[in-house]
Each structure stands twice: as structure tokens, then as C-alpha cells.
């Protein structure tokens, strides 16, 4: 079998991914400490770090959205039904039989149909909700003014639910990195930007490397 390398992740995407990973880690640890699950940094420091990480996360989100729009990379996140069935079948059966991946990655199609669905869910359902409830949490201390939200009860419960979803995502996400061409190829691609592809017909990059 012939291997070739193609650029999958640009410098910005790799920076974005790993920074976001560290921020999500920081938000999760401090967040669950604030929630009362375990002691780690101390409550006050946890709150300060959580707020600061939230601001960095939001800053990064703004930059990333801008980047996705100007580079048209947002197309990666648009859900599709095309090959969705095959992808589900692959993970539930084909993978155990050593069948090949039903989809292949390119610069403008780096997410499989299942990933598109999950990531779009994160981007549309989880992140905006976390950001919105987080801002309420930080700034809405007068429960009657200007709108009666009856305190933090709802915002906090929603924010906590979102946090659990993120943790569940991370667990599955980290595991799924091992389902590439080799156990480590997906992680290596996110570090170097390049991935070894097995099918040379699909390696022609749609855009030239920078």
C-alpha cells in the first residue's frame, strides 16, 4: 500500500485545538471544584481561574469564528447525511472487522459525518449555552433587576449540565483519536498538521499548504 502525506490542520487550527484543550481542562477542573465536587485550587482561586479561563475561551472563540469564516473552514462543521449511515456502521461493526474507513479526510472535509453532527451540536447547543449561562452566573447578581430570573438556580443547573456534556464529549473524543489509520495517527496529525493517507487518489489537497 502506498502512503502519502497531506496537510490537514493549519497552524492556526492546531494552536486553536490545543489551547482550547487546555482551557477546557482548566474550566472543567475549576468548574467542578466550584460545584463542590473536589478541592483543588481552593474555592476563591478556582472562581478566579474559571472566570479568567472563560474569558480566554470566549476570546479564542471569537478569533476562531473569524478565522473559520475568512478561510471558509466552517464548511467542515456543516452536518450531512451523506455516508452518515456508513460511518455509524463502521464504528459499530466495521471497525471490529478491520474494514476501511468509509470516509476520508481532506483540508475541506476533515470531519466525518458523525463528527460533523457532534461538533455542530457542541458549537450550536453546548458552547453558546455555556457562554450565556456563564455570563449570567458572573454578572447577574440582582435577581430582580432588570429581569426577574429568580437567582442563579436555572443558569447554574444548565451550566452544570453543559459541563457534564463537555466531559462526556472529551472522553469519547480522546478515545476516538485512537481509531485512525493507526492508534496515534490522529493525534500526530493534530500536532504536525500532516496525516498519512492510504488512498493516494484522495490526497490531492484542495488548497495548497501555506
Amino acid at each position: 500500500m502506498k502512503y502519502s502525506k497531506q496537510l490537514l490542520y493549519s497552524k492556526f487550527e492546531r494552536f486553536w485545538h490545543w489551547t482550547q484543550m487546555l482551557l477546557v481542562m482548566m474550566l472543567t477542573l475549576t468548574g467542578f471544584e466550584i460545584h463542590g465536587n473536589f478541592p483543588m485550587f481552593g474555592f476563591e482561586q478556582a472562581v478566579r481561574l474559571h472566570s479568567a479561563a472563560a474569558w480566554s475561551f470566549m476570546g479564542l472563540a471569537v478569533v476562531s469564528i473569524f478565522w473559520m469564516i475568512v478561510t471558509k473552514q466552517y464548511v467542515n462543521f456543516i452536518p450531512t447525511k451523506n455516508k452518515l449511515r456508513e460511518q455509524v456502521l463502521y464504528y459499530t461493526s466495521g471497525i471490529f472487522k478491520g474494514m476501511p474507513h468509509p470516509t476520508h479526510k481532506t483540508m475541506f472535509n476533515k470531519l466525518n459525518p458523525l463528527q460533523r453532527l457532534v461538533y455542530a451540536g457542541l458549537l450550536i447547543l453546548i458552547f453558546p449555552v455555556q457562554i450565556f449561562t456563564g455570563i449570567v452566573y458572573m454578572y447577574y447578581h440582582y435577581p430582580q433587576n432588570p429581569l426577574d430570573a429568580s437567582g442563579l438556580t436555572f443558569a447554574a443547573a444548565t451550566h452544570t449540565l453543559g459541563a457534564f456534556m463537555v466531559v462526556a464529549f472529551v472522553i469519547v473524543h480522546v478515545y476516538m483519536t485512537t481509531t485512525g489509520n493507526s492508534v496515534s495517527s490522529n493525534v500526530k496529525a493534530m500536532i504536525s498538521g500532516y496525516e498519512k493517507e492510504t488512498d493516494p487518489s484522495l490526497t490531492e489537497p484542495s488548497i495548497q499548504p501555506e
Partner: peptide
Amino acid sequence: FYLPGRDYNKWIDFSGFAIIIVSLIGVILH
């Protein structure tokens, strides 16, 4: 009132931990 660090919604915490445990079991089985 809801006091962070003291209060939690027991249904959300229960389902949250359930989701995490199911995810872990799922990836381990897989």
C-alpha cells in the same frame, strides 16, 4: 437561593455522572 459550591440540582448531577459513566463504559467496551 442558589449558592454556588453548596447547592446543586440532584437530577442534573445524577444524569451528568450517569452520562460520564456510560461514556467511559462505552469507550472501554469498544
